[in-house]
């Protein structure tokens, strides 16, 4: 290894402040602000075209911001003298010269940042490519290229890591390998930012989420907070839904029909479907209230928050949520 903590005085933090990026008349990123801190994996989520890659490109100095700024360790990326010692980045695993050997690809990158060739061998070992170090990259599978890109990001043993869609196109083994690597890097106290358009993946990988849509911030929250806020509740089925609804609302719960139409009290649940979603009351309390009024229950299922649904709802609405935290 090249030594322990390597971050600058700015302290392993990514700060995006009021960032706007326009391409002609298209606004790709619109007054976006968020902070990414060390010791956690932060998922950068949004539908395709939301502005995730653009934000990362501006952060890495590839594209110029129209206004606002994106800083790493308190500085602009382009002002870092040996940037790979502070920030590791993987934007596009396909962006390799097919005729170059894996060792050479990492070799020139390392040389450009004053990193020795021994470190090149180390990172190739860490990502499992030591055996193909002298092979041309053109013959690599997508998974191998992804590993090579991650090896490049790790070269300088940086405190901040930025990955754009690192699991795209990978097989389940590859996905799991990346997930575990990201978690391990965060556990070492590094700042890890991963973009994705898949909430299901981020749910398993990330601790925090920055969700954007149409270039704007939608949510800046922890995975737990989002789970608590959305989709919580208990699914209840009963042959007497109207009566049950009245009882539960009186008890302080909020009741909706399971097929989505809202209702603070009036629910048209037929006995066949009979599904209600109750929030504000635990399964135990619902059972007790029903028993006290002699209402039979066919089903009482605590609903686990589906972050996927929360995400769909967030991005569809496009409104700002929890941005102040």
């Amino acid at each position: 290894m090249c030594g322990g903590a390597r971050s600058g005085e700015g302290g392993r933090v990514i700060e995006v402040r009021e960032l706007t990026k326009r391409y002609g008349r298209t606004v790709a990123v619109d007054r976006l602000s968020f902070v990414v801190r060390p010791g956690a994996v932060t998922g950068f989520l949004g539908p395709n075209g939301a502005g995730k890659s653009t934000t990362m490109r501006v952060l890495l100095g590839l594209d110029a911001a129209s206004s606002g700024e994106a800083l790493v360790n308190g500085r602009r990326y382009a002002s870092l003298r040996r940037p790979m010692l502070e920030v590791g980045a993987l934007l596009d695993a396909g962006a390799v010269h097919a005729g170059r050997k894996a060792f050479d690809h990492l070799g020139w990158l390392a040389r450009g940042n004053g990193i020795g060739t021994r470190r090149v061998a180390e990172v190739l070992e860490r990502v499992g490519l030591a055996g193909v170090a002298r092979k041309r990259v053109g013959g690599f599978s997508l998974g191998m290229r992804q590993r090579l890109g991650i090896a490049a990001a790790l070269l300088g043993d940086p405190g901040v890591l930025v990955f754009d869609e690192p699991v795209n196109g990978l097989d389940p083994d590859g996905v799991r390998w990346i997930r575990e690597l990201m978690r391990a890097l965060a556990a070492e106290g590094r700042t890890v930012l991963i973009s994705s358009h898949l909430m299901s993946e981020m749910e398993l990988t990330a601790d925090r989420l920055v969700v954007i849509g149409r270039g704007r911030l939608i949510a800046d929250t922890s995975v737990q907070e989002l789970a608590d806020r959305f989709g919580r509740g208990v699914r209840v089925r009963s042959p007497r839904p109207d009566e049950l609804t009245r009882v539960l609302v009186t008890a302080g719960g909020t009741v909706e029909s399971a097929n989505g139409t809202a209702g603070g009290g009036r629910v048209a649940g037929s006995p066949e479907s009979g599904g209600l979603v109750v929030s504000g009351l635990e399964a135990k309390a619902i059972g007790e209230h029903a028993a006290a009024h002699g209402i039979p229950l066919y089903e009482v299922t605590p609903r686990n928050a589906s972050l996927e649904e929360a995400y769909m709802e967030l991005t569809a609405r496009g409104a700002e949520f929890g941005a102040a935290s």
Binding site: R57, L60, G61, L62, Y77, A78, S79, L80, P83, M84, A89, L91, D92, G94, A95, V96, H97, A98, W108, L109, G112, N113, A152
Partner: peptide
């Protein structure tokens, strides 16, 4: 041009950001 064709121009600028 090989850097533009392969996309390594971005990698080059990540390694040496001062254009």
């Amino acid at each position: 041009t090989s850097e533009y064709r392969s996309g390594t121009i971005a990698t080059s600028l990540i390694a040496v950001p001062h254009r």
